[in-house]
Design a protein around this nucleic acid. Structure first.
Length: 423
RNA sequence: GGAGAGGUUCCCAAGUGGCCAAAGGGAGCAGACUGUAAAUCUGCCGGCGAUGCCUUCGGAGGUUCGAAUCCUCCCCUCUCCA
């Protein structure tokens, strides 16, 4: 059987490997691998999907993924790829975030019977005695060498504090620790983690003489160069409370043409042969593929139920287009079905207010479609406000109970930002 | 600790007493064109009960009819020196 590394490579997951041959040898039999997630927020976002899914691939190939929560390293802060120091988070905040991330990550992997593992580096980092650590670990690091690391270079221009400078040592120590405690000799991570991963490999070699391996993922950007997971409303979170499944679905539907095939291979588990067929498509045919992409990713993150609802809601708002049964045929996306508007993010409006009539400007703000009343006015003046299919041109227009159909009404700000109100 | 440079609206960056809610660029938003894409063109882009009013130019005071612009003190960042 092909190595999981070949599979990952074919799907575009691999940016760099420290030792391609050695890594493959290591993975010939079931082995452990780990990725660290620092709890800097109470939810992961689209940017973490690549590492997460790589672990899923690992598990599917019979290996044992270790999810390392950075309860300890999060207290320090990774300067890699950052232009300035991140705000320091309190210990309580970190712990709270770590719990939230654990809950989120547990949906993707099977943690039963030790098939995958959750560990928290706070368990071994927080209590480290400073002097001992310097003597045992610190002595193996050359500052001269560290300063040449790409991850520090950027910061050398703008400023790098000592606490952040230590991050590399802590991550290297994590790897050493995991190699000894869990027989884990493979670390993966974003390409910005290269320096930290290599530092760990070298530390393991110096301390124990053993070989360890590293794999990094490409830094994901969209075809237009934007970072993954940024939308008009901010980051696209994996938490349904922070980004509704419908908005999450929409994020993927709005992918750039040039990204569709790449995203299908990285963010879904559809067979590569099927994804290959997408590459020749253009125009409306390609557009349909975006629905499949969105459906599949939403399924992975929020479950098929939610994905279905989002898909049908999108159909009801934007219209349905036939999906060729042979196109990406492994996808469970419905090839025929009913439209349902309910999955559009909805805000309930008090019935008594609707009796009198609620100004559209107010509704636009209350639903979050506009940031301020001024913005709402501007939107109306520019002709971007819709109630149902009707464009609203009057600044003083208001919505009454009679405007609702079957208890709801779709409000649109522009063509794509959509919110539903109901009684 | 010393010397110098600097902190402007989401980001970069002009502005050095009234013409400044503050140039320009980027990002973003809307409209047109489309395919819920890209590119392009046009408009918008602090807030509000809106031909006016309020809040903003690191912070706190002060000078002045009037300050982002002048003065004082403080905070923060960078560079060089110790």
């Amino acid at each position: 059987m092909d190595s999981v590394l070949d599979a990952l490579n074919a799907r575009g997951f691999i940016a760099q490997e420290t030792d391609s041959e050695g890594g493959r040898e290591y993975l010939r039999s079931p082995a452990a691998c780990y990725i660290g997630f620092d709890p800097t927020a109470d939810s992961l976002h689209v940017g973490s999907l690549v590492p997460i899914l790589s672990l899923v691939h690992m598990q599917r190939h019979g290996h044992r993924p270790i999810v390392l929560l950075g309860g300890g390293t999060g207290l320090v802060g990774d300067p890699s790829g950052k232009t300035e120091m991140r705000k320091m988070l309190s210990i309580e905040q970190i712990q709270c975030n770590a719990r939230a991330l654990q809950k989120q990550l547990s949906k993707f992997l099977d943690f039963s019977d030790g098939k995958a593992l959750f560990l928290n580096n706070a368990d071994w980092l927080v209590g480290l005695p400073y002097i001992d650590f310097l003597r045992d670990i610190g002595c193996h690091f050359s500052v001269n060498r560290m300063l040449t690391a790409e991850s520090y270079k950027l910061r050398l221009e703008t400023g790098l504090s000592f606490i952040e400078f230590n991050y590399m040592l802590l991550q290297a120590y994590d790897f050493l620790h995991l190699s000894e405690s869990n027989n884990c000799f493979l670390q993966m991570g974003g390409n910005d983690q290269w320096g930290n991963i290599v530092a760990g490999i070298e530390l393991i070699r110096r301390k124990t003489g053993k070989s360890a391996y590293g794999v990094t993922f490409p830094l994901m950007t969209t075809a237009s160069g934007a970072k993954m997971g940024k939308s008009a409303a901010g980051a696209v979170w994996l938490d349904a409370e922070k980004t509704s499944p419908f908005d999450f679905y929409q994020y993927w539907v709005n992918s750039d043409d040039l990204d569709v095939a790449r995203f299908l291979s990285m963010y879904t588990f559809l067979p590569l042969e099927e994804v290959e067929a997408v590459k020749g498509l253009e125009g409306q045919d390609l557009n349909v593929c975006k629905s499949v992409l969105a459906f599949e990713v939403t399924s992975l993150v929020h479950g098929q139920e939610q994905a279905l609802a989002a898909y049908e809601a999108a159909c009801s708002v934007f219209g349905r287009r036939e999906i060729d049964p042979m196109l990406l045929r492994s996808s469970a996306i419905p090839r025929a079905g009913r439209d349902r508007a309910e999955a559009v993010p909805t805000t309930a409006i008090d019935a008594t207010r609707l009796e009198v009539g609620v100004p559209v400007v107010d509704l636009l703000v209350e639903t979050g479609l506009c940031a301020s009343r001024s913005a709402a006015r501007r939107l109306i003046q520019q002709g971007g406000a819709y109630a149902g299919e009707k464009r609203i041109s009057d600044l003083d227009a208001s919505i009454g109970a009679g405007d609702l159909h079957e208890g709801g009404l779709i409000l649109k700000a522009g063509k794509k930002k959509i919110h539903r109100i109901c009684v």
